[in-house]
Design a binder for these strands. Sequence first.
DNA 1: TTTCATTGCGCAATCG
DNA 2: CCGATTGCGCAATGAA
Lengths: 202, 202
Amino acid sequence: MSDTRTSTVIQEWNTYQGQNHNQDLNPCISSNPASQMTQMDMMSYSQSQGLVRGGGDRMAEQHMTGLSYLSYGPSCLSNTMGTGSANHHQNQLAAQQDFSQFVIPSPPMPMRAPMTKRTLSKDSMEYRMRRERNNVAVRKSRDKARRRIVLTQQRATHLQEENQRLQMRIGQLTQELDTLKHILSQRHVQVKEDRATEETGC
Amino acid sequence: MSDTRTSTVIQEWNTYQGQNHNQDLNPCISSNPASQMTQMDMMSYSQSQGLVRGGGDRMAEQHMTGLSYLSYGPSCLSNTMGTGSANHHQNQLAAQQDFSQFVIPSPPMPMRAPMTKRTLSKDSMEYRMRRERNNVAVRKSRDKARRRIVLTQQRATHLQEENQRLQMRIGQLTQELDTLKHILSQRHVQVKEDRATEETGC
DNA sequence: TTTCATTGCGCAATCG
DNA sequence: CCGATTGCGCAATGAA
């Protein structure tokens, strides 16, 4: 599943635009989030939702087998592209590079309206709320997974130890059993001898 | 470590920009993936190493506390923002909100030139190459982790079963031992009685 | 310093 | 519709 996409990403990066994105903490800026609103630029169009990216399109796009993406001119895409997630998916698709066939050929495709349902936006408070809740859930889920892994590991270790104790115990019991069996066999001989003596004696 | 960032994210989202990103697997494309990556992954790219990659900037950026980024005009930043990762770090730091003290006060800080070395990428082929190699490494590492987890789970299950078998074996041996001990004790009594009889008989 | 390996994290798609 | 999971890419960090 994961092997094929390696090189493909590379081509996609071409579509990237400058985006310095980031940086982590710039002291001045980060301090007051508000300041950054710089980005508004993006929202200028983004939430307009109907237009360019709205969440709606998101859904539509996904199932469109990437057709919608073809339309991306390097120009429009370039600046809106997200760094993180945006890429992955495209990569996977782009990797094969043979989308040309899909572009026109598909007739049966329903191709739903781009943003039928919601504004979904990126800018919407709604969106951020959802994202934040999901992030919390993700952290929770991962903590749980981590704990589970540790417990399983400990359980295995414990069982391994107990196992050795049991093996040892079995060794002891077997030994003891052998001893008793030997004694018993000796006893048996003794009895016979006694009887013989007994008879002779009389 | 992970607790504080919850709310902070919200503010950061302002910086977000649109990005449609997306899409996952195109049926046609995804078809052959997986297969082998397991072993070849390591060597596949490893040897390419010599050419482009500079790497230097990455380090620089990280530890510059973002100073170099300040130079970024809001304009360029706004649209270029990455969706995914860029945020986190900001969050973590932003959460503390007391960076103002660091901004000016730190005199000893070397503060290297903003973009002295390289264009800093994002657009650079170099950057993409590095990212892609890391993505491969990450997938490899996670597959490994997943396999390890499964194996540990199986090991635990196996040990548990063996454990039960051993317990049962111990039960059998103990039982057998008790039986023999009983028989022996009886024999002992028998011998005494015999002797008594013997004496009396004469 | 550079490379690969790990790890924490957010995003988006899916699953219950 | 919501939280839980999961695969994925990014960036920081560890180790060689």
